[in-house]
Structures are given as structure tokens and as C-alpha cells.
Design a protein around this nucleic acid. Structure first.
Length: 486
RNA sequence: GACCCCAUCGUCUAGAGGCCUAGGACGUCACCCUUUCACGGUGAAGACCCGGGUUCGAAUCCCGGUGGGGUCACCA
């Protein structure tokens, strides 16, 4: 088999989002599976839309996701440059050759004329096509007008009829009628190449063997095939992967479900969970298996198992998967990953002492099975670092309103003050006190939980108190006694 | 509108003519565990878009319809 070289060619506009990540991931998986090379090329041909520092943004996204390109900006593999705008000379050289060989020609029609033509086509209900007006201009005259500085674009001579078939590795053969294509633009009036032209020239020169890209590009493929023919070069294999759709089944857009990677980072998602979720959107290893590492997926990844139909992106399932990975984290790992969230919320300041670190670790493991993201973990552990500022109103009404509760809390505070702060000893002490007071354990447990955490839900009371410690526990029980019914 | 792609529970999917009484996961609901909430466990409801063929037999193959999506630029 020939050397597998795939590329991911994003435009530098906007933030990398999930659709972006999924396509990049499939390319990476495919490259790894076949021991090939994954190339990143930034398609910044449209100057108006380029964004400064795009390469850095991509690098950050890749480094979080946990996989990256083998060749790209700052990672020369001998096929650079990897910024499309820097490949202009190559594009123009190909343009010149096509012009010389009579496969392309200059077009002097004004945008207004073309717009009018398209409007007319639409009105008459036929597909809008460029009428090839300038195709008949003699090469000599064309050269003269260009030399005279007349505004022009360069167009490809497209055969007026015939059929073209795209051998798609996922969809099989897809046939297109050349009659629906027109002599499309290769070089714009400002002298820069169009997407289709630049992409084809670059893919060819970068020796790309397989083009794996989103389904939306399938309609572009015949144009690109025509270009390979004109250039006299073999086309790469194509595979169009299904798109990811927003929950309302519409195309992902900034306004609509295309959550930026940075947003997942900020919400405390784990990259291994996001990647696992994403790889299963439109692909699966067969059977019921759903948890895979990147390496395992690379081993198993084949285009045969890529879905043909688009997948709707479901936050709930991704959140579930994140919670699953979160629960599997070791105490140290959970602490290490949650630390940035804790310090962002000013719950502790770095550097953290060994003692405080141990305390945080214990607190964190108590909430581990109860949260879905790192941000939630930081939040759930808040009361271990500061006294509760507010108390759940329903909880107050339910657990602090019973007459005698204030006395019970005071008694509990007194009893616990003399107790060893281990979960076992605390439980024994509370159980004994409940018996002495003639109340159920629950009548002590619920008010106590509310007193120390402000909430009605959370970790087991005794484990919680054991971590919180005597001082914090006793103070909070006394404070709550003042709010409780006497 | 034209062209192209697609079609299994609400969602992600298994399924490559008989193994399907259509399996799994998320979500939903119940129950168990339990000091609360989670976790975990058990169970329930829930789908082959419709219509024609082909075949002894179709979720699987073919055709048509319908529905959804994409593309129709001097944007990528």
C-alpha cells in the first residue's frame, strides 16, 4: 500500500469546535491505523477572514485533546509551508501552466454581470451557470488585456457534458452530471486562489493520499477531480464522513451547538471523555463496546465502520461519559485536575501546602461520584473551604423547623466536641445521642448536614464531618442552632 | 428550485437475507442498596419512515414516494 498521508485543513476563522475536533480525530485515527502521516494545513487564503495566532489556537486545542498532527506549522515534514497563504507561488505556477496549456482562461466579466446572469437563471428555473462568455476570447487577446491591467479572474475549462464519478470510500460511487458544473473560478480578481483550486494544488503537492473530510464537501469533489485531470495528476482517495448536527438537527454553527473546545475546558470536561464521545459519533468498533482510548481506537479504526448518516450531538450523553471518566480518576489525579478550578474560584491559593492538599484530596473524593465535571467538583467541595453562605430554603423548612431542633444541634455540637473525628466514632456518638434524646438518627443527621454544608444533598454525613474536622463542625452546628426552632 | 447524500427506540448505535420475540448505551420511569444525594444493581416503557417489488424468507437487496441534511460564490 502506498504511504498514507492525510490532512486536516481548517480555516483559521473562529474557535476550534466539536465538528472540527471530530474531523481532525478521524484523520488522526486513520493515519495512525495505517502508520501514516497526519498533516495540518491552515487554509488562510481569504485574507479578510484570517485570524492572527491561529496556529497557536490549534496547537492549544490539540494539546488538550491529546493527539496532534505529525506535520504542520512549526513541524516541517518536507512538504511545507503549511500555511496556505505562503503557498501562493505554487498556486500561481499551476495557474500559468493551465493557462499555457489552454486548460484555463481569463474572464473579464464583472461581478454585476454575473450576478444578473445568475438571477436570470434562477428566474427561469434553471441552475445558475456561468455562460462561458470569455472562454472564446483568443489567448492572444486575453494576454493583451491582462497586460493592460484589466480586472479578471481565471476560470477552468470544464467539459460541457459528460459524467464524473467520485469513488468515495464511505459512500461508494457517486455520479455527477458535468452539465450542472460551469467554468468555475480558480484565481480571484485579487490574484489569490479560490478554495477548490488551492486545496487541490496543495493536496497534490503535499502528496496527500486520502482526503477525509466532512460530508458537506462531497458536492465540491467533482470540481476537484476536474482539477486533478487538468493538472494531469492522479487524485487522492476521498472519504466523506457524516456531519455532526445540532440537537435540533440543523448544521452546527457558532450560534448553534458548535461548542468551542475552550468551552469544554472551562466547564471542566476531561479530554479523554470528550475524545471518546466524539470518536463514537459516526463511528464505532462494532458490537457493544463504547469505552476506548485513543490508541485502542486507532487500532480498530476503519472507514468501513464509519456511519453514512449524520449524528446529532447530545450533551447529556457526553456529560455522562465525562462523569464516568471522572469517577475513574485516582485521588491524586482528581486533585491535580480540579486544582485550577478551585483556585479560579478563590477557594484556595497556590502554592498549596501539603496539609491543605491532603484535605482537598479527601474532600474531593467524597464528591467524586456525585459530580459530572471538574467545575462541578470544585463547586461541590466549596463548603469544605468556607462556611456555607446560604442554606437550602426547602431544607431549612424541613429540617430546622421542628421544635427542639436548636437544642438537638447544640447537644450534638457538645457531644461531637468530645469525640474522636473518625467516621466510625462520629457515627457511634450521634447514634448514642439520638437514643438519649429519644429521637431518630435522621432527626439529627439531616439538620447536621444542612448546618455544615448548607445543603440537603451530599456525601455521607460522617465521612463529611471527619474531613471537615472538629472546629468547623462544632462552630457550624452552633451557628445553625441559632437559626433552628427552639 | 436543481444536484448530491442519508434514513433502526427521543439521542448515539449493533445488525452485512433466516441467529431478530430487533441487542447495547445515554435519557426517562420503577424497585433494591441507603442518613440525604449520587454511585452501583435489577427491571420497564421505547425504533426497523411509507408503498411496491425480488425471495421459501427481508431491518438487511431493488424501485418509487416521503422526510432530514448538504451543495449550488471572485467563502473555506
Amino acid at each position: 500500500m502506498t504511504m498514507v498521508r492525510v490532512r486536516f485543513a481548517p480555516s483559521p476563522t473562529g474557535q476550534p469546535h466539536i465538528g472540527w475536533a471530530r474531523t481532525a480525530l478521524f484523520n488522526w485515527l486513520f493515519a495512525r491505523h495505517f502508520g501514516g502521516t497526519f498533516v495540518l494545513r491552515i487554509e488562510d487564503t481569504d485574507q479578510k477572514r484570517s485570524v492572527e495566532g491561529a496556529a497557536q489556537v490549534f496547537d492549544d486545542a490539540f494539546s488538550w485533546l491529546g493527539f496532534t498532527y505529525d506535520e504542520g506549522p512549526n513541524k516541517d515534514g518536507g512538504f511545507g509551508p503549511y500555511l496556505q497563504s505562503e503557498r501562493l507561488a505554487n498556486h500561481l505556477a499551476v495557474r500559468d501552466r493551465l493557462l499555457e496549456e489552454g486548460k484555463a482562461y481569463p474572464c473579464f466579466c464583472s461581478p454585476e454581470t454575473l450576478d444578473a446572469g445568475r438571477a436570470e437563471d434562477r428566474r427561469l428555473g434553471r441552475p445558475p451557470r456561468y455562460p462561458a462568455t470569455c472562454r472564446s476570447i483568443a489567448a492572444e487577446e486575453g494576454r493583451a488585456r491582462i497586460a493592460a491591467g484589466e480586472a479578471h479572474v481565471i476560470r477552468l475549462k470544464v467539459p460541457p457534458e459528460g459524467r464524473l464519478v467520485v469513488h468515495d470510500l464511505i459512500r461508494g460511487d457517486v455520479e455527477f452530471d458535468l452539465a450542472v458544473l460551469d467554468d468555475f473560478v480558480l484565481i480571484k480578481a485579487d490574484g489569490t486562489p479560490t478554495y477548490n483550486f488551492a486545496a487541490v494544488v496543495d493536496d497534490a503537492q503535499m502528496a496527500i493520499s486520502h482526503v477525509l473530510r466532512a460530508d458537506e464537501h462531497l458536492s465540491n469533489t467533482p470540481k476537484q477531480l476536474l482539477l486533478y485531470q487538468a493538472m494531469g495528476l492522479p487524485a487522492p482517495a476521498f472519504a466523506h464522513v457524516p456531519m455532526i448536527l445540532a440537537p435540533d438537527h440543523s448544521k452546527l454553527s457558532k450560534r448553534h451547538g458548535a461548542t468551542p473546545i475552550a468551552e469544554f475546558v472551562a466547564q471542566g470536561f476531561l479530554p479523554e471523555a470528550v475524545v471518546n464521545y466524539l470518536m463514537m459519533l459516526g463511528w464505532n468498533p462494532g458490537g457493544d463496546r463504547e469505552f476506548l482510548t485513543l490508541d485502542e481506537a486507532a487500532e480498530l479504526f476503519t472507514l468501513e465502520r464509519v456511519q453514512k448518516n449524520p449524528a446529532v450531538y447530545d450533551t447529556q450523553k457526553m456529560t455522562w461519559m465525562n462523569a464516568h471518566y471522572l469517577r475513574a480518576l485516582s485521588e491524586d489525579e482528581l486533585w491535580r485536575r480540579t486544582l485550577p478550578f478551585l483556585s479560579a474560584q478563590k477557594l484556595l491559593a497556590e502554592p498549596v501546602s501539603a496539609e491543605l492538599g491532603a484535605y482537598a484530596r479527601s474532600a474531593l473524593s467524597l464528591v467524586q461520584s456525585r459530580v459530572s465535571t471538574l467545575a462541578e467538583a470544585a463547586d461541590a467541595v466549596r463548603f469544605f473551604f468556607e462556611e456555607p453562605r446560604e442554606f437550602d430554603p426547602a431544607g431549612v423548612a424541613k429540617h430546622l423547623a421542628r421544635p427542639g431542633t436548636a437544642g438537638h444541634l447544640t447537644a450534638l455540637a457538645g457531644r461531637l466536641a468530645q469525640t474522636d473525628f473518625s467516621a466510625g466514632a462520629l457515627e457511634t456518638a450521634l447514634t448514642e445521642l439520638a437514643a438519649e434524646l429519644g429521637v431518630s438518627r435522621a432527626e439529627l443527621i439531616h439538620p447536621a448536614r444542612l448546618a455544615v454544608s448548607g445543603k440537603t444533598v451530599g456525601p455521607g454525613l460522617f465521612e463529611m464531618l471527619a474531613v471537615l474536622g472538629a472546629k468547623g463542625t462544632v462552630d457550624r452546628l452552633h451557628a445553625a442552632a441559632k437559626m433552628a426552632a427552639p
